[in-house]
Design a protein around this nucleic acid. Structure first.
Length: 347
DNA sequence: AAAACGTGGGT
DNA sequence: TACCCAAGTTT
């Protein structure tokens, strides 16, 4: 019974697998090549909480700039952070570099789930995914897609996150010894294309006959999720400080932890997800209000006012003058890229 | 254990 | 428009 589930799913995958830049076609043996685990790992980290469409151009750029884990390990933090700009969850990029250096140091990626799990930025999901997809290990790979598919398949009604243990145990019963990587990716393809959150396409599902959630009537209500918290509204100010008739702008590097940590940015008034900014500019002067940018984070919505000043002196603290013509290469996170766009439009 | 941590696309 | 949420990890 459970064996027939994995067999049905793999048959479906053989016919319906998505063609993705980091993926082998179904059934193709694992390459005996050190760059293969690197590409799997890189794609998995990029895909954490991030859509396939968003990842594609970043994966292409990273693999062109740094074709191997050794190349990435040798890159500067600044270059990697700048290349990650716009993808979000920047702690991933900070951990990416740490992980690359650790892996280069030990001479390649480890092949076991436990060793992978000990690397920076690899949690339960990513360690299992790399073990299965890069090394063919029969690891139990559970992401949000698998949670949804399994909760429905076995009609697990307990609410998340409490249901995770039961979901994982159920997932383990259908994980095959062979083609573990294909199986993991098949579950994720099924979850993203067929067993979708809102309107599952049960008529196209290779597991419909076995699905207890479908039998029970309302597969779309599973898995049961906890109520969502309200997202606070915050206000802050960013400062566009120029010299040389607006040809250079003052940029800072944000602290290594916290929001947009380690990213180059415009100076601001200390706003955070927890509190509004002070509004206080870093320099006295005749500031011009250029407008505001609205930006949604996971746990706060921000209105960022943008003020501009052509300055004689240097602002206090660490920072650098950056050619405005090259602002696109500064590696600004989307929030500050929008603020910069506003400044350039109003200049 | 709960909260922090980005962004863009879909509905 | 507003809300949802996607191949999660860290503290």
């Amino acid at each position: 019974m459970t064996a027939s589930i994995s067999a049905s799913l793999l048959d479906w995958y053989d016919a319906n697998a998505r063609d993705l830049p980091w993926r082998l076609p179904p059934g193709v043996p694992l390459p005996d090549d050190a760059d293969w685990p690197y590409r799997v790992w890189l794609s998995e980290v990029m895909l954490q909480q991030t859509t396939v469409a968003a990842v594609k151009p970043y994966f292409a750029r990273f693999t062109a700039l740094w074709p191997s884990v050794d190349a990435l390990a040798a890159a500067s933090d600044d270059d990697v952070m700048a290349a990650w700009a716009g993808l979000g969850y920047y702690s991933r990029a900070r951990n990416l570099v740490k992980c690359a250096r650790a892996v280069a140091e030990r001479g390649g990626f480890p092949a076991t789930e436990a060793e992978l799990r000990a690397l920076p930025g690899l949690g339960d999901y990513t360690a299992a995914a790399v073990a299965a997809i890069a090394f063919g290990k029969p690891a139990v790979v559970v992401d949000a897609n698998v949670e949804r598919v399994v909760a429905r398949l076995f009609a697990i009604d307990a609410p998340l996150p409490g249901a995770r243990k039961a979901i994982r145990a159920a997932a383990a019963t259908i994980t095959p010894e062979k083609r573990a990587g294909d199986f993991a990716q098949a579950m994720m393809d099924l979850g993203s294309q067929v067993c979708t959150g809102k309107a599952p396409r049960c008529l196209l599902c290779p597991l419909a006959d076995a699905c207890k959630g479908r039998k029970a009537g309302e597969p779309a209500r599973l898995p049961v999720k906890p109520p969502k918290k309200a997202v606070p509204e915050r206000h802050g100010t960013a400062f566009w400080i120029t010299r040389r008739q607006g040809r250079e702008v003052w940029l800072v590097t944000r602290p290594g932890t916290g929001m947009l940590g380690g990213m180059r940015a415009l100076p601001d008034d200390g706003w955070s997800a927890r509190a509004d900014g002070s509004g206080a500019p870093p320099l006295a002067g005749d500031w011009r209000v250029l407008g505001a940018v609205r930006h949604g984070f996971t746990h706060a919505h921000l209105t960022l006012e943008v003020r501009a000043l052509e300055s004689e002196g240097q602002p206090p603290g660490e920072g650098q003058w950056w050619a405005v013509a090259r602002i696109g290469e500064a590696g600004l996170a989307t929030l500050f890229a929008r603020a910069a766009a506003l400044a350039l439009a109003g200049a």
